[in-house]
């Protein structure tokens, strides 16, 4: 079980809460279960979500492990120039 913090735009999709708990060990599992438990998050996942693990952003690595004690933060996908 990991604690997942959400950026503001996701709060309406999770019933107004800013932190949720999900049984997940990888980013893939986290994003899948997020959509299963909170279907309104699906458009956000489709548009791209970045996952911050202990302050380091991961945009594409589904296989990345989620350490149980790590801070997991969901953020919008960043673009660059």
């Amino acid at each position: 079980m990991v604690e997942v913090k959400l950026w503001g735009a996701l709060h309406p999709a999770t019933g107004g809460v800013s932190t949720i708990e999900i049984e997940a060990t990888t980013i893939r599992e986290l994003l899948r279960k997020l959509q299963e438990q909170y279907p309104d998050t699906a458009p956000f996942v489709k548009n791209g979500i970045a996952v911050s693990i202990d302050g380091v952003l991961y945009r594409d690595s589904w296989e990345k492990k989620l350490p149980p004690s790590a801070e997991i933060y969901l953020l919008p996908r960043i673009v660059g120039g």
Binding site: K5, W7, S52, D54, G55, V56, Y73, L75
Partner: peptide, 11 residues
């Protein structure tokens, strides 16, 4: 805790 959310590692 960064202003955009996550806690920083070494920076």
């Amino acid at each position: 805790k960064s202003s955009y959310g996550p806690v920083y590692g070494p920076i």
